[in-house]
Simulated scan of single mutants.
Amino acid sequence: MNLNGKYALGILLTFVLLAAVMLYVFPLIYFITGIKAFNAANFFYTRIALWTVLGLVFLYSLFIEKNTFLLWKDKKYSTLFYIKAVIALYLICAFGSSFLNLIIQLLTREGMSNKLAQISLVFKNNYLLIIFTCFTAGAVEEFLMRGYIQPRIEKIYNSPYVGIIGSAALFGILHSTYGTIGQVVIPFFIGTVFALFYKKYSNIKILIICHCMYDLVSMMILNFIDIKHLSAF
């Protein structure tokens, strides 16, 4: 198998593993623990499963592709650039997502998904779980979606645009398990913004920080706002 074939297989492996975690990890955890409840402990184990996926993909890149996990070497920037980039990315994602959410609400009047409602109850005042969840999402999703998948799609199709749109589309599709249109469209938008930034500046650390911050603000809203008002956000 040539290198592009190995890249394609790695992308497929990554998507299948992430989809399996999103769809089937809770039943597996219920079976292992014997506790059929959507609680903090079981949710914590699902985050461990995501780290496991990252580890498996890393091993695949090392031993099957025989290549570095990050095809694009991280560029170094000043502390001031980090601060400006994180703030700019956050504001673009926050305002863009709010606008898209407003449009979706006007067109579909869809409410908050049952899964998100369950998650909001699990996170209630559990700050350690919130922090660990945000860090997991930021690190695992950025390493896999932008760091691993985006450059390899670009290599296969010899097109940066296919890499950007392809990685963003996979990012949106994986969030479809939350059960709403907004949870596909908004992640696709954020994935596109992040992919454009990664292509231009080649720095995964900035994306991880911004992703963590974005999720942390969202989770704190989930924590403090009454659940019946959450669809507005």
Results as ranks from 00 to 15, higher is better:
129 L>Y: 11
59 L>H: 08
77 Y>N: 02
4 N>T: 03
187 P>T: 08
213 M>S: 13
173 I>E: 02
202 S>Q: 14
34 G>W: 03
34 G>M: 05
144 L>G: 02
94 A>G: 01
129 L>F: 05
188 F>V: 09
189 F>P: 00
224 F>Y: 15
130 I>N: 06
169 A>Q: 00
108 T>W: 12
109 R>A: 14
111 G>Q: 13
101 N>S: 14
227 I>N: 06
23 L>G: 04
125 N>G: 01
124 K>L: 09
150 Q>I: 00
58 F>H: 07
70 L>A: 08
225 I>E: 10
200 K>Q: 10
109 R>Y: 08
97 S>L: 03
2 N>V: 07
202 S>K: 15
45 Y>D: 00
28 L>M: 13
170 L>N: 03
129 L>H: 09
26 F>I: 03
112 M>G: 03
36 K>W: 03
127 Y>L: 09
196 L>N: 11
17 L>P: 00
172 G>C: 09
43 F>Y: 15
221 I>H: 07
120 S>D: 06
177 T>D: 11
96 G>F: 07
110 E>M: 07
53 V>W: 06
120 S>I: 09
48 I>D: 01
70 L>E: 09
157 Y>R: 07
186 I>S: 05
221 I>V: 14
88 A>P: 01
139 A>K: 03
19 A>W: 11
75 K>A: 15
179 G>N: 10
108 T>K: 14
82 Y>H: 12
129 L>N: 08
23 L>R: 14
172 G>L: 04
163 G>H: 05
103 I>T: 11
97 S>V: 00
175 H>P: 00
175 H>S: 06
146 R>P: 02
186 I>T: 11
13 L>I: 13
91 L>F: 11
132 F>D: 02
140 V>A: 06
130 I>H: 04
212 C>E: 10
143 F>D: 00
126 N>S: 07
132 F>C: 04
127 Y>F: 09
103 I>A: 14
201 Y>C: 02
68 T>L: 04
145 M>I: 09
9 L>V: 13
161 Y>H: 07
181 I>F: 14
112 M>K: 05
65 E>T: 04
86 V>E: 07
219 M>Q: 05
171 F>P: 00
190 I>D: 03
98 S>W: 10
191 G>Q: 04
101 N>G: 13
22 M>A: 13
204 I>Y: 05
125 N>R: 13
205 K>W: 15
98 S>T: 11
6 K>G: 03
88 A>K: 13
163 G>W: 05
198 Y>N: 00
143 F>I: 01
121 L>V: 10
63 F>T: 15
36 K>H: 12
2 N>F: 15
57 V>P: 01
87 I>P: 03
212 C>F: 15
51 W>H: 08
28 L>T: 05
149 I>S: 10
